[in-house]
Write a protein that binds this DNA or RNA. Sequence first.
DNA 1: CGACGACTTGACGTGTTTCAAACGAGGTGG
DNA 2: CCACCTCGTTTGAAACACGTCAAGTCGTCG
Lengths: 224, 224
Amino acid sequence: MSALNVATRSIPSRRSPAQHDHTLGGSLQLMGASMTFGRNEEIYGEGEPAEYLYKVVSGAVRTSKLLSDGRRQIGAFHLPGNVFGLEAGSEHRFSAEAIADSVVLVVKRSAIEALAARDSEIARELWTLIAQHLERAHDHLMLLGRKNAQERLAAFLLEMAERNYVGNAVELPMSRQDMADYLGLTIETVSRTLTQLEAAHAIELPTSRRIVLRNRAALNALNA
Amino acid sequence: MSALNVATRSIPSRRSPAQHDHTLGGSLQLMGASMTFGRNEEIYGEGEPAEYLYKVVSGAVRTSKLLSDGRRQIGAFHLPGNVFGLEAGSEHRFSAEAIADSVVLVVKRSAIEALAARDSEIARELWTLIAQHLERAHDHLMLLGRKNAQERLAAFLLEMAERNYVGNAVELPMSRQDMADYLGLTIETVSRTLTQLEAAHAIELPTSRRIVLRNRAALNALNA
DNA sequence: CGACGACTTGACGTGTTTCAAACGAGGTGG
DNA sequence: CCACCTCGTTTGAAACACGTCAAGTCGTCG
């Protein structure tokens, strides 16, 4: 389902930003409509025209690609504050789905581009944004290339802690299957490896979605 | 060794582009000095200030990261015409080395940025460039996540064929070790898998650096 | 309370890594 | 011109980490 279709039955709403707010964040709020997506609902599909830009307000989003035989690779997780859907070409190269019930700010790409053409500050922010995506992709590459399951989980947990930290605990919005598809592992290996890390006193698992980092040094060592 | 150091003993030379050439390619030639690097010579190191932008004239370059225990991940290969060294922050996040003897055009980043600030066409080209890097990184992600050795090699060969094709043969500028570090495999697995693909009549290996794509359909099927 | 989905655990199979040796092409010196 | 060395590549055998298939547990919701 495309963003346009979804828009027909979502609840648009506007915030009240300061006038003449010449930042990307401010502009997005000024021009965007907020939409809600249910768990596992598609925000846009691979190959669809990339007419909109998105910013996560609450919840979480994954961008992923499906292979012909059902294997799935998750390219990135997007948490509150993150922008996604930014593309070079005219089409989305990944699909985007809500991981949990989410509120997302939606802005027309043409509007942002028009803004960037006139305001170099906005253009600079857009540059920073895509450069951040590239950095994330590079980090993700490092994670997938010849690292074992423990090293992948350690890197993942440290990344989530950095982006999503509340004290020493990480609140995971995604399922084990999502983690597996992000890390290039199976759900069983993810589960077993978490159990190993807990046995090694590197982490604690009060619930399956909450992970306490008990020994960051040990995790960092795995992340070498 | 940093680009600056290398510059002291390289042979700067200028081409003669048309005057008022308002394209990035033209500007790079106008403002850049060409430098030569020997096989395995470092062009810049991880963590060094990113003061320059580079364009491969001839030869080939790899950008890579080293892990503490010696494992290496290659982030990308850069062939003639490709630009590399473009960074979001002030430091290079990967190191760059020449794979073979190479000639590289070197341009001051500040000069390019000044140009882009005045000329929106240049700015747009820079945007396209970094977006291409992001696309490549995404393709690379798909390659590394839960694909077996045959699928990785098939994807790699098709990518190289697309970027570097001469008829149906691919002339590889890089060693088996470089391929392994790009694909997240060991050198032995790369070698064995190529032998398997040859036995399956998907490719031919006249020499170790030259690969003839004999059955693209079979390779594409692996790339599903 | 019962049913469903998500997660964990177990036993076994397999593809890739590891360690080791052999091979081949290119270059140098006799 | 051939012997010899070197470096990259290929091949072999064994070990191991992860995948697969299957059963069991836990938490949630109706």
